[in-house]
Design a protein around this nucleic acid. Sequence first.
DNA 1: AATGAATGAGTCTTCATTCAT
DNA 2: TATGAATGAAGACTCATTCAT
Lengths: 197, 197, 197, 197
Amino acid sequence: MRAYAGNVAARSGQRAGLRPDAARNRARILQVAREQVAGGDNSLQLNLIARLAGVGVGTVYRHFPDRHALIEALSVERFRELVEQARAASSAEDPQEGLRGLLRFTLDLALDDTDFASVLSSAGGERAQTSEMKAELDEALAVLLDRARLAGTIRSGIEADDVRRLLCGVEHAVRSGDGERRELYLGVLLEGLRPPR
Amino acid sequence: MRAYAGNVAARSGQRAGLRPDAARNRARILQVAREQVAGGDNSLQLNLIARLAGVGVGTVYRHFPDRHALIEALSVERFRELVEQARAASSAEDPQEGLRGLLRFTLDLALDDTDFASVLSSAGGERAQTSEMKAELDEALAVLLDRARLAGTIRSGIEADDVRRLLCGVEHAVRSGDGERRELYLGVLLEGLRPPR
Amino acid sequence: MRAYAGNVAARSGQRAGLRPDAARNRARILQVAREQVAGGDNSLQLNLIARLAGVGVGTVYRHFPDRHALIEALSVERFRELVEQARAASSAEDPQEGLRGLLRFTLDLALDDTDFASVLSSAGGERAQTSEMKAELDEALAVLLDRARLAGTIRSGIEADDVRRLLCGVEHAVRSGDGERRELYLGVLLEGLRPPR
Amino acid sequence: MRAYAGNVAARSGQRAGLRPDAARNRARILQVAREQVAGGDNSLQLNLIARLAGVGVGTVYRHFPDRHALIEALSVERFRELVEQARAASSAEDPQEGLRGLLRFTLDLALDDTDFASVLSSAGGERAQTSEMKAELDEALAVLLDRARLAGTIRSGIEADDVRRLLCGVEHAVRSGDGERRELYLGVLLEGLRPPR
DNA sequence: AATGAATGAGTCTTCATTCAT
DNA sequence: TATGAATGAAGACTCATTCAT
């Protein structure tokens, strides 16, 4: 018996130990799920996803024991992107500008995917992998916040998770409006995070 | 048909023209629905509510043709309270303090009832009665915002509906945390609404 | 206590012993029911009829214990018209022409009201009043058939109830087509009733 | 997925491509439905049928999305028999006798199954398969009618669909009587279809 | 491993009928 | 008598999940 694990798969976010066809199925399922979510359908009906992905329901269940597992898998992908951005931002020359850019990037991801937004703002309860990614994000974000605090543009008492949550709040606000208010609301948040006058 | 309308019922927010027993049932249904929502169950299953209220399903359907009608009826109650507060606040001596008080009050209502929160931040689409109440709220809120703007504590370009939406954003942020951050997040919002430095 | 019975009401097909307002209600209900049926709605939902008639459901139930009673009441009205025509036809100069005219008239009534058609073709089971009217119709029809039989245009072995049933069959045939075949199908029936060659 | 299609299933009117167990369920459901209809119950409640067939409701819905699909499936079976008879009849030596036999056969089917009768007389609106079968029937019937017309026993202006409809009319007439009149009414129809004198 | 048929609890919804007012 | 609110049995339909193939 061959082992299919390994270097290549691991690097590209694939689950280790998957036969190539299984990996392909997994990828298809995630792809379809992502499209559904982007298309505004949040119900993530596993039967539907299976059909769209061209696989049986059973296959979906094999890869994702329940709906939540699927949502988390999607989130992990988003988180991967986000952590990368956060790391880049944390070494920006102007920390306030780095922060603004990072929050805008995060906001757009969240506007794209409600489920990701809710994982982003939630306090634990998720699988290990998600927690890990969230911790990595918070770490980079904390660096940025500390630097900005030193520069006097962030008030004290605000932690990385506060920022995550408030940003998801902004996401809701933007979403419930016509979408034109993204910059305005983001500006309100950034101004609100400064030390009070 | 006899008319059961009148003095007493009208005063307490009951529908006019309802037979006393019908009014009692309606009140029971709303009561149960309110408890469900407060208890975190948002599904508002009409069967369940009927059973809990001790009435037949048909009775629930008679009073509330669909789930949305029930949600709105609950919202209208909340709105009634809220509009009253908003009117009082709009004539507060210090508009900024009036605003802070009103937003805190609103935030607490929204934290109590997710459905109410979503009606509060939504852009139209609801029944006439709800739209009316929302308009009344916005009117009182606009007065307050204008006064605060004159006093230099609110930036230009912010309307009543922006405030409603941003506040619901704060509600999400508070809810996704441990609830201890209410004052902090509210402070961030109020600071963010000030003219930018 | 006054009795509201009597001569006038009895003559015009009203139920005897009804208070004038009750009679008015009864008439309204029948009127609405007739319109519903003519409009193609055969379900005769008593709640709906009550609403359209501007009376309570209970009132409908007082006058017509169940749906069937209402259907029959409508039929009785139709029968009254029909019996009158049948009597006139039975003394027509040319019995075959009289028969054709009568069948055409009956066919149109039946096309207008499916329920009436089914009472027309049914074998008993109805209330006394309906049976009576049907007997009167059959009597007039039998006279016509006998006269036509003497003239050689009706085969032997065909009774009035056969003709009623076959005519309702034609009604179904016409109804399931585009309505353009009324005369053709009626012609087929009349030809078929002649003595076989 | 393995394909279970094939030789055996195809021959016996089963849907192709069905797993053997699925085919068994489908057959059971149809069997039960047929019995219900034959027993005079026309409501075809899918819940009841599921229970009687010993399968879950979902299974019934999988095979037949709605009541109509089930009715049509039953009809298709009847049509299959009927088309076979019609083909045989269309090449009968004496076309009039062939026609009589075919109509008698059809009448018995229709008397057995009201739903089939209504599909038989209806003008389109059904699924492709039903339309096809009806077209095949009409074709064979048309051949027979043309031959009989040449022999002088069928009037001009009568098409296959007229005959289908009129026969269903006869079915109603027979059904509303005591059933003893089948031959008489069929005779009336056949006589009526001859060229008028 | 993959498949998708089967399951059936759970919900929604309608409407004939009753009965308190 | 009239009213119409209330009832709740009944039926339609969905979908997460299991499991035989």
